[in-house]
Structure formats: structure tokens, C-alpha cells
């Protein structure tokens, strides 16, 4: 009854910042505009984090869901996260 399905969790994130970790060494942080059943996502004011530590700003993107590994609601990328 009170179970929150995974996609409902993502739906709750629409309009807020989200941190996307891809398979492999790539990450994105941005505002979630929308997504579909494949978890392809539209993101706004995006920062793309490279494996090299480089980051690129992008205004609005459609990110292919195929290589997405994990989503962190409210996250703003690896720079804001604590690491050892």
C-alpha cells in the first residue's frame, strides 16, 4: 500500500536537482525536467563530469537511459559529495 516504486521515486524528483552516475566513469548533475519508461531523461543546467575530472556545462539535454547506473535525488555531482 505505502510502497514507493522506483519510478515513483524518480517522478518525485522532477523539477529538482539530480545526480546521475553512468556505467563506466561518467556522471551528470542537473535539474530533472522529465523522463520516460526507459529512464531516458531530460536534464537542464547540466554539468557533465568526465573520468579525467574535467567538467562541461550543458543547457538542456536528453540523456540516453541505456547507460545509466544510479540516480541520486538532490545530489549535485561528485564535487559536492564526501569522498575519502
Amino acid at each position: 500500500m505505502s510502497q514507493l516504486l522506483p519510478l515513483e521515486l524518480i517522478d518525485k524528483c522532477v523539477g529538482s536537482r539530480i545526480w546521475v552516475i553512468m556505467k563506466g566513469d561518467k556522471e551528470f548533475a542537473g535539474t530533472l525536467v522529465g523522463f520516460d519508461d526507459y529512464v531516458n531523461m531530460v536534464l537542464e543546467d547540466v554539468t557533465e563530469f568526465d573520468y579525467s575530472g574535467d567538467h562541461t556545462k550543458l543547457k538542456k539535454i536528453l540523456l540516453n537511459g541505456n547507460n545509466i547506473c544510479m540516480l541520486i535525488p538532490g545530489g549535485d555531482g561528485p564535487l559536492g559529495a564526501a569522498s575519502p
Binding site: 561518467k26 547540466v46 538542456k60 539535454i61 536528453l62 540523456l63 540516453n64
Partner: peptide, 9 residues
């Protein structure tokens, strides 16, 4: 399509 990571405006 399988090669595409993202499309950016």
C-alpha cells in the same frame, strides 16, 4: 541510436 549517450540543444 544505440551509440548515443546524449542529445544536447
Amino acid at each position: 541510436g544505440n551509440n548515443v549517450m546524449y542529445i544536447s540543444a
